[in-house]
């Protein structure tokens, strides 16, 4: 039998997000967001602002709801049967769940990079050109070529693949594949990029390359990253949000969260007492 009395985190109450969840210059702002999978509630009353051209990191133990929350931001949860969301999520003060809001357009504005690199079974070129072709962003072949090259350069992949643009994207190494996925996302010029544990399937060297790329991209894009690694959150993000069992416990400057956490649960987590 586990002595529950000694597991203090079960007793700690979470009524309100502590720290500084709200900021002035918000790109995204969410209020009272609840998410359900069928009858099971996955997110409880999440309130947070995500700042423009910033990197915000979302951390927390597995199953805490951080990925679910991230997928609300570009309505990827729409594709999961039985998932429903209440509350307000606003992008540039527009409700993204409003019935006139178009998920296709929203996802073009809010790009996403996944945990496992998932290049399409197409050539490297076609992977990057995919979004542009879908949305009709390039009017001719020359423009498209230019766009592909530019995106690959921005993703730091061009040098490695410039001679093999027409080889399948699935033939690249894991780190290259992930940069290809980033390249294909920035090819449609989004405003926000969501990254769901983008380096968890990669080795440390590839991780370092991607992290550098994130910092570089944040000059132009707003980035929200879910990560398992507190070191990564500390290295790349300006702000950090800590999730615990569906609750948003604490949001603050990354520095503050890691050096002077306000909430007991956050402290337990970052000091490695569980998670």
């Amino acid at each position: 039998m586990i002595d529950i009395e000694k597991r203090e985190e079960f007793d700690i109450e979470i009524d309100k997000t502590v720290g500084k969840p709200f900021i002035d210059d918000a790109k995204f702002s969410t209020r009272n967001v609840d998410v359900f999978y069928d009858d099971k509630q996955a997110i409880f009353d999440a309130n947070i602002d995500i700042g423009k051209n910033q990197i915000i990191a979302m951390i927390g133990p597995s199953g805490c709801g951080k990925s679910t929350f991230l997928r609300c931001l570009n309505r990827m949860n729409d594709t999961i049967q039985g998932c429903h969301i209440s509350g307000d999520i606003k992008l540039d003060n527009e409700d993204i769940y409003h019935k006139h809001q178009d998920p296709v357009l929203l996802r073009a504005r809010v790009g996403m990079v996944f945990q496992k690199p998932n290049p399409f079974p197409k050539s490297i070129y076609d992977n990057v050109a995919y979004g542009a072709k879908l949305h009709g962003l390039a009017s001719n072949k020359i423009e498209l070529d230019e766009l592909v090259e530019k995106s690959l350069i921005r993703a730091g992949l061009f040098k490695e693949v410039k001679d093999s643009l027409h080889k399948p994207g699935t033939g690249l190494s894991g780190g290259q594949q992930q940069r290809l996925c980033i390249a294909r996302t920035i090819a449609i010029d989004p405003e926000v990029i969501l990254m769901d544990e983008p380096t968890s399937a990669l080795d440390p060297i590839a991780t370092a390359v991607i992290e550098e790329l994130m910092i570089d991209l944040s000059k132009k894009y707003t980035i929200a990253i879910v990560t398992h690694s507190m070191q990564q959150a500390a290295r790349v993000s300006q702000r950090t949000a800590y999730f615990h069992m569906g609750h948003l416990v604490e949001v603050n400057d990354t520095n503050t969260v890691f050096t002077n956490p306000e909430h007991q649960l956050t402290e337990n987590y970052i000091t490695g007492r569980f998670g």
């Binding site: 570009n74 990827m76 594709t79 296709v104 357009l105 929203l106 996802r107 073009a108 790009g111 996403m112 996944f114 496992k116 998932n118 290049p119 399409f120 079974p121 995919y130 979004g131 879908l134 949305h135 996925c181 294909r184 996302t185 449609i188």
Partner: peptide, 11 residues
């Protein structure tokens, strides 16, 4: 993940 990748591009 293939589907997710494509939907996330706005397809």
């Amino acid at each position: 993940s293939m589907r997710d990748g494509s939907y996330a591009m706005g397809a």
